[in-house]
């Protein structure tokens, strides 16, 4: 009968191999996740550069999308000074919000979008087999292999827009801005929280392909969800909007993760953080941690159901 051996004892077990002494050492080696990620990033860069025109066109297309977006809201703000009364979302504040959204979108599209789609495809074609063979965390391995550098252009554009309008606000005598040395790290931190939440939602959705066999709804879903999270949450605070407000604040807190970092810099209600701001910030942090844990759980469950494809 076979009995369960303690795996830890195995390296000492004689396998009659010539390099026996090396096994214990070989078994204990840990991969450097940073090195693996940097190799992914480098390989993606080499790949992008070898298709030069494609790279340039991708940059141009995403930048023009952003420019049109900007133009549209510029037009809207010719008709109004602010979104709603006493919400504080004037033109400068709103463009800081827009810049924040561009940065989060761009991070997702640079690092995760192609990978989540590819993961879905790997499940259908059975190529996930190879990811499962590697002695490294599988979720890590499928989340990062492709870095779509061209999509990073919008993050820089977003950053430029934010710097420009933050400067406007700081020099506006009517505003009471509270911009300290902590504002920038806080902004970065909450942008990352937002990115983590969006990543988790995306990878969870992609993992469901294991049960569905095929899941081509990723892009659609991304379009739907970003439609809701790319506006200040105050616009939902009326009529039926409250239902959306509640759903996207407490159930799937995508509104929170886009609003919190934007509010850190735009400060629509002035520089003082009230209890509501702290609540939102806490939801953002909890959502990031919770969604990441949840995505790992779903991912593991999904792998258990993976059945590979024909040879």
């Amino acid at each position: 009968m076979l009995k369960a051996h303690d795996a830890k004892q195995i390296p000492q077990k004689s396998t009659g191999l010539p390099h026996e002494a090396g096994i214990a050492e070989q078994v204990m080696r840990k991969p450097s996740y940073l090195n693996v990620f940097l190799t992914f990033a480098k390989n993606s860069m080499i790949r992008d550069m070898s298709f030069r025109m494609n790279f340039i066109l991708q940059c141009i297309s995403s930048l023009s999308w952003a420019a049109m977006n900007y133009g549209l809201f510029k037009i809207i703000y010719q008709f109004s000074d602010s979104i709603g009364r006493r919400t504080g979302w004037g033109e400068s504040e709103f463009f800081i919000f827009l810049g924040t959204i561009w940065i989060i979108n761009s991070l997702i599209q640079t690092f995760f979008m192609a990978n989540a789609t590819e993961f879905s495809e790997m499940i259908r074609t059975g190529n996930l087999d190879f990811a499962l063979l590697k002695p490294i965390d599988t979720q890590f391995l499928i989340s990062f292999p492709r870095v779509n550098w061209a999509q990073l252009a919008n993050a820089f554009l977003g950053l430029a827009v934010i710097i420009f309008y933050e400067n406007e606000l700081l020099h506006d005598p009517d505003k009471q801005m509270n911009f300290t040395i902590w504002s920038v790290p806080a902004f970065i931190f909450f942008v990352l929280c937002g990115t983590v939440v969006m990543y988790s939602v995306m990878i969870t959705l992609a993992a469901t392909s294991i049960w569905m066999g095929r899941n081509q709804n990723l892009h659609n879903f991304w379009f739907y969800i970003t439609n809701f999270y790319r506006y200040p949450m105050e616009i939902y605070e009326r009529g039926i909007g409250w239902a959306l407000w509640g759903t996207f604040t407490f159930v799937i807190p995508i509104l929170v993760v886009s609003n919190v970092p934007a509010r850190v810099l735009a400060q629509p209600m002035g520089g003082h953080w009230g209890i509501w701001d702290w609540t939102l910030a806490s939801i953002s942090v909890v959502a990031a941690a919770g969604s990441l844990v949840a995505s790992r759980w779903v991912f593991r469950m999904a792998l258990k159901s993976y059945r590979s494809a024909s040879s």
Binding site: H5, A7, Q26, V27, N127, P135
Partner: peptide, 23 residues
């Protein structure tokens, strides 16, 4: 080698390889 393959321990995965001619 004493490992249960589908537990997918990293120690095991460092010690074998699979090559598929079709993929």
């Amino acid at each position: 080698m004493g490992y249960v393959p589908w537990e997918r321990e990293n120690e095991y995965r460092r010690r074998f390889a699979l090559v598929m001619g079709q993929k």
